[in-house]
């Protein structure tokens, strides 16, 4: 694949230094929300690429959890704290499991895919919730990450973890963008439009779905590792259906138009929630629900359509858009 960088990819590359600079510009608590949003945003990204093939996974928390728990278990029982090793382990675990489950799930579409993926994730939830050795529903804590033998402490440690999170997230986003532009990406869109035609044209829809499922699982697991390391704690709530549901809602709300949309959407939703809680701690869900409805009414194609339509109007892109990866 020797395609040149498209606008999105340039945007992602430019976003990296911007994101890293933010850690010095913004107060630490905002950076913290950005960091956790990148972790969960990766899972939303996993949901989004499946959505491009018309598949709605209501159980993506499964791989989010597998990533987090793999890192946690490796830390707890093997004493591994190297972030890169943990990432690789999380990816491997998720790819193996997704590859096997894929044979089952690739036959399903629409609501049946959604519910079966939900069922599988809830079985893991049940297993973890009854494993007292792993803290049951309370979960357990993770060690501080190290990097190839380097163990930065305190503020430096947090900054390093943030930077690594940004690099990994944007790297994966870039890779996924390549996937969307590859033949697989176009086959997926064709599957969403009309699967039967894809089969008539001589391509295996099952195979494309299977590959997409594994890729989505890997990305989500990476998100799980990064999120768990930032938090220092994992619990089975990661694979509960309410968590998976939120990933789906973010993806729909953000729109499937661009690879950056779920990442930005996750952060925006998080900030909206924080302010809703601050304004009205007792009825913040109502505020959140109302805002969601308004967004759907006015922006049926997701938040990303705001940026897309603005772009069409102004020929010269503004700096803010470059930052957001357009």
């Amino acid at each position: 694949m020797t395609k040149s960088f498209d606008k999105t990819e340039w945007g992602l590359l430019l976003a990296l230094p911007v994101l890293i600079c933010l850690t010095f510009l913004l107060p630490a608590w905002v950076v913290n929300y950005i960091q956790v949003s990148l972790g969960t945003g990766l899972v939303a990204l996993g949901v989004m690429i499946q959505m491009r093939a018309g598949l709605v996974s209501f159980g993506q928390g499964l791989y989010f959890c597998i990533g987090g728990y793999t890192a946690g278990l490796a830390g707890k029982f093997l004493g591994i704290s190297d972030l890169f090793v943990l990432l690789v382990m999380g990816l491997l675990a998720s790819v193996v499991i997704a590859f096997l489950l894929g044979f089952l799930l690739r036959r399903y579409r629409e609501i049946f895919f959604a519910m079966l993926s939900l069922a599988v994730s809830m079985i893991l939830f049940g297993l973890l919730s009854s494993t007292e050795e792993l803290g049951s529903t309370d979960g357990f804590n993770l060690p501080q990450p190290t990097y190839l033998g380097w163990a930065p402490e305190g503020d430096l440690g947090e900054t390093v973890l943030y930077v690594v999170t940004c690099v990994v997230t944007l790297g994966l986003a870039l890779g996924l963008n390549r996937v969307l532009r590859s033949p697989l990406g176009y086959i997926n869109e064709a599957i969403r439009e009309n699967e039967l035609r894809v089969e008539y044209l001589g391509t295996s829809a099952h195979r494309a779905v299977h590959i997409t499922y594994v890729i989505a699982a890997a990305v989500s697991a990476a998100g799980g590792v990064l999120w768990a390391m930032a938090l220092g704690h994992v619990d089975p709530e990661m694979t509960n259906w309410t968590t998976s549901g939120q990933f789906v809602f973010v993806s729909i709300l953000a729109g499937t138009g661009n690879i950056a949309a779920p990442l930005i959407g996750t952060f925006l939703l998080e900030i909206v929630r924080v302010y809703a809680v601050e304004i009205s701690p007792n009825t913040w869900q109502m505020i959140l629900g109302t805002l969601m409805l308004l967004t759907i009414i006015f922006l049926p194609r997701g938040l990303w359509s705001l940026i897309a339509s603005a772009k069409r109007k102004t020929a010269a892109p503004k700096a803010s858009e470059i930052m957001e990866g357009n």
Partner: peptide, 9 residues
Amino acid sequence: KQKNADYQK
């Protein structure tokens, strides 16, 4: 879901 980030805030 983001108890730690809420705490930091």
